[in-house]
Design a protein around this nucleic acid. Structure first.
Length: 424
RNA sequence: GGAGAGAUGGCAGAGUGGUCGAAUGCGGCGGUCUCGAAAACCGUUGUUCGCCUUCCGGCGAACCGGGGGUUCGAAUCCCCCUCUCUCCGCCA
């Protein structure tokens, strides 16, 4: 959610910038400014009247104390009409406040100045590539055949237990999951991220804080009996740790890392390219989250990108980093880098991480602020997060890229975690 | 699941209708003292909104779990909701 101050001060700038996200904000912003000015007008009036009311009430109090009943009664007379006016004014304020809020949450975050215009994946800009794209031998298999061949992930069994998109990991497949999670967490810890293991069910306030609610509720599984949502990413519980919190500037940046399973309904997004591990309803992911000082959040973003880059290169996967164009960025993001790894048998790039700076957009919803030492004024923090990393497509790429005649070779860095160096 | 108790400022904890935004203690910040520190003493100490102000700031309103009500006036009375704790039951 953008702050009302920014909208008041930089209307034209906002309208221009939001065009980069292919969003026409003019109408909404005009409506917001109109609502805002009537809100303030009513607020000023009611404040004045309420002040008068408070004065009279105090007066009545002291008159009563002095036993001047008649004068007190006369003062009471004065309050009746005043009270009615206040009531009718504040009744007017309620729908205005509600509409203002509803309009405010419809505005997407403004893209960073480096974000290029565009409509989709084709307009994203490759900013860096790394690793070597291996040439596979004849007869190389896509990962959905490999997992059957080695019996390490069972989709049919998952369908029996739950439904499509809930695979069962078996044997070395299960152990590979554990190994990757531990590896990612350990690398994060080395880079100074403090680990959290949060709940994977969250309440409505948390869903609102990070921007999943109210608009994207169809993407989350909803436990209606208790009104909890299954987390689509650890971003939700971890970022909400800092909801309604005022931090000291010296505490920034806060760096957290968390592993959680992630649950996504993916309603309507099933189509081509979703075979095997490419898209699941439940998957594992390690997420890094930062709460940063607004003056330094882009340094944080760069550090997070380097961290993720380090992970994929340690795993020996060919990768590329994209800066998303305006049209491909999420509603809440100001700048997003996507990481893709090369899937040798599918011959396509698979997205394995998305690292974003939300600037103060989430912080404003979360009411996460900080105070500079000695300052009275609070400011909104910047929030950032990134996958480091999401497992399924990493596994897909590892299986496909590392297949040999004798089996699938485990990357060097994972062997201490798996305890084996070959899946065969 | 059954029975009871409670929710007050960063924390602890008073306050049952009239200067209560809220006693007191702790903590935090500033100062005195000190070579320095501790102790002691003095001062200060929340958030949001609105109006005014070039800055510092000033004035007003709201906030005592959330929402509604009674009243000239509510932390205090009434109703609803949420959450927490204790005991019993069940249980990884």
């Amino acid at each position: 959610m953008l702050t009302i101050n920014l909208i008041r001060e930089k209307k034209e700038f906002l309208i221009e910038r939001l065009k980069i996200k292919n969003f026409n904000a003019e109408e909404i912003i005009n409506r917001i400014l109109l609502l805002d000015s009537s809100r303030r007008e009513i607020q000023s009036k009611t404040d004045l009247m309420q002040g008068e009311m408070n004065r009279i009430s105090k007066e009545i109090g002291s008159l009563m104390k002095d036993g001047k009943r008649d004068e007190a009664d006369a003062a009471k007379e004065k309050t009746y009409s005043l009270k009615e006016e206040i009531k009718s004014l504040s009744d007017k304020l309620i729908p205005i406040d509600n509409e203002l809020r509803n309009e405010l949450i419809r505005l997407p975050n403004i893209p960073h100045e480096s974000v290029a215009p565009g409509f989709g994946a084709d307009d994203n800009i490759i900013i860096r590539e790394g690793g070597v794209i291996a040439v596979l031998p004849d007869g190389a298999l896509p990962h959905w055949d490999l997992i059957k061949k080695f019996d390490i992930i069972d989709f049919e069994l998952g369908i029996k237990l739950t439904g499509a998109g809930f695979p069962v990991y078996k044997g070395k497949g299960a152990k590979l999951q554990r190994a990757l999670i531990s590896f990612f967490l350990d690398e994060g810890e080395k880079a100074g991220y403090a680990e959290l293991m949060p709940p994977i069910l969250v309440n409505e306030d948390s869903g609102f804080g990070t921007g999943q609610l109210p608009d994207k509720e169809g993407q989350m599984y909803h436990a209606t009996l208790d009104n909890f949502y299954l987390v689509p990413t650890a971003e939700v519980p971890v970022t909400n740790v800092y909801r309604d919190v005022i931090l000291n500037a010296e505490m920034l940046p806060i760096k957290n890392i968390a592993y959680t399973p992630c649950f996504r309904r993916e309603a309507g997004s099933w189509g081509a390219h979703v075979r095997g591990l490419n898209r699941l309803h439940q998957f594992d992911k390690v997420e890094i989250v930062r709460i940063a000082h607004p003056d330094h959040s882009y340094e944080s973003l760069e550090e997070m990108v380097s961290h993720v880059e380090n992970l994929v290169s340690k795993l020996g996967l060919p990768y590329r980093i994209l800066r998303l164009c305006g049209g491909d960025m999420s509603f809440t993001s100001a700048l997003t880098y996507d990481f893709e790894v090369w899937s040798a048998a599918q011959k396509r790039w698979l997205e394995v991480s998305s690292v974003s700076n939300f600037e103060s957009f989430q912080a404003n919803r979360l009411k996460c602020r900080f105070k500079e030492k000695g300052e009275k004024q609070t400011r909104l923090v910047h929030t950032l997060n990134g996958s480091a990393l999401a497992l399924p497509r990493i596994v897909a790429a590892l299986l496909e890229n590392n297949q040999t005649e004798s089996g699938i070779k485990i990357p060097e860095v994972l062997i201490p975690y798996t305890g084996f160096d070959l899946i065969n």
